[in-house]
Nucleic acid binder design. Structure first.
Lengths: 195, 195
DNA sequence: TACTGTAGTTAGTATTTACTAACAAAGGTA
DNA sequence: TACCTTTGTTAGTAAATACTAACTACAGTA
């Protein structure tokens, strides 16, 4: 699970290629070109193409997990933590647009069991953490408790993803961080205790 | 924009292939096999592969548009219409799982300008209709009016998509219609006028 | 100095892919 | 009957793709 610096360079190059034109654009040729060396050199660092893709997913998943763990361990109220998730994600994607495609590539990874389950794990893991934050918020009174945490997590994560998707389909033309703020203004109204 | 019956058969076969293994699995060979005839026969019905993909998108978009128009024209209150959208979509996907991949394939269509803009159009069109339903609901008092319709539409559509995505990543194991009901129970609480 | 492992190179290959050329059967119509 | 259009066939091709073999430059170390 540790990567050499060269591997990380390749992971980043692959991520960018996926971002530019979907998985279809991630060819050994394009990757080698982007790295500025020959195709066979890639195979000094990764076993095969699936290995590269699975590393892209794993590397992304690791970063996300670390951040989420940090968040959960803080002393803030539940609703505050949700706000921090939005802030972190939108700023992160804003600065690293290439990563966006990876989270929307679920369908593209379908063809390989190993990859599709990696995607599934990342999403499930994140959702579980969001659910536990919501449950905490319902206990500490910062989140309305008349709704199912599981469904609320779907609403929360779905809204975020949808906003990011629109930004992506709009060729990154909007200011994503601003969009995040607008979304938050609505989320907070929907989630806070109604009395 | 009219398709022959043979073209529709091919569109459906292509949709199923995409569903099974993403766009990567949609090859002329696999498509011909599924249709039970030879590869070149495909080219009697479609100019090229892009033409097939763009027809898949267009055919899907047409169906969606028709249904949405029906909904909008009814006499129901805004919130009722949203309920009908959820019911329609979840039941539709439940019965035709193959279509699911198409709506999650935004990223895969990226590589061709013509296709990616088709996807963008479908999504934008649908969102605009949802927004206008929400605005109507805010006027007729069935939807809370202290939130921005645009953002609310993102929350609504995002939640639906996310629920469907989970179902898909979970290999269609859940009962999607039931998931739709659970989601609706939350949505209605979040959206109704708070007093 | 000799040796060894790392990370590159060039050249090449089997397979897959989208697509074309040329032909054929069959049905409708002049 | 003759002919045209439609929709299929077989055979084939150029290009792309993932990957391998064999060689090399070089840095670190015994």
């Amino acid at each position: 699970m540790d990567y050499t610096s060269r591997q990380i360079e390749i992971i980043n190059a692959a991520t960018e290629l996926i971002n530019q034109g979907g998985i279809q654009q991630l060819t050994t040729k394009a990757l080698a070109e982007k790295m500025g060396f020959s195709e066979p050199a890639i195979y000094r660092h990764f076993k095969n193409k699936t290995d590269i893709l699975s590393s892209v997913l794993n590397y992304f998943g690791m970063g996300l997990k670390t951040k989420m763990t940090e968040l959960i361990q803080s002393e803030d109220k539940g609703i505050e933590k949700l706000k921090q998730i939005i802030d972190f994600q939108f700023e992160h994607f804003s600065n690293h647009p290439a990563i966006v495609m990876v989270i929307f590539a679920e369908t593209s990874f379908q063809y390989e069991e190993k990859l599709s389950s990696a995607v599934h794990n990342i999403l499930t893991n994140k959702k579980e953490r969001v659910i536990s934050i919501i449950q905490q918020g319902q206990k500490d009174g910062s989140i309305r408790s008349d709704v199912d945490p599981n469904q609320l997590a779907s609403v929360f994560m779905g809204s975020m993803r949808f906003t990011i998707l629109q930004w992506r389909l709009n060729s990154y033309r909007d200011d994503l961080v601003k969009e995040g703020t607008l979304l938050w203004n609505v989320i907070i109204k929907l989630l806070k205790e109604s009395n």
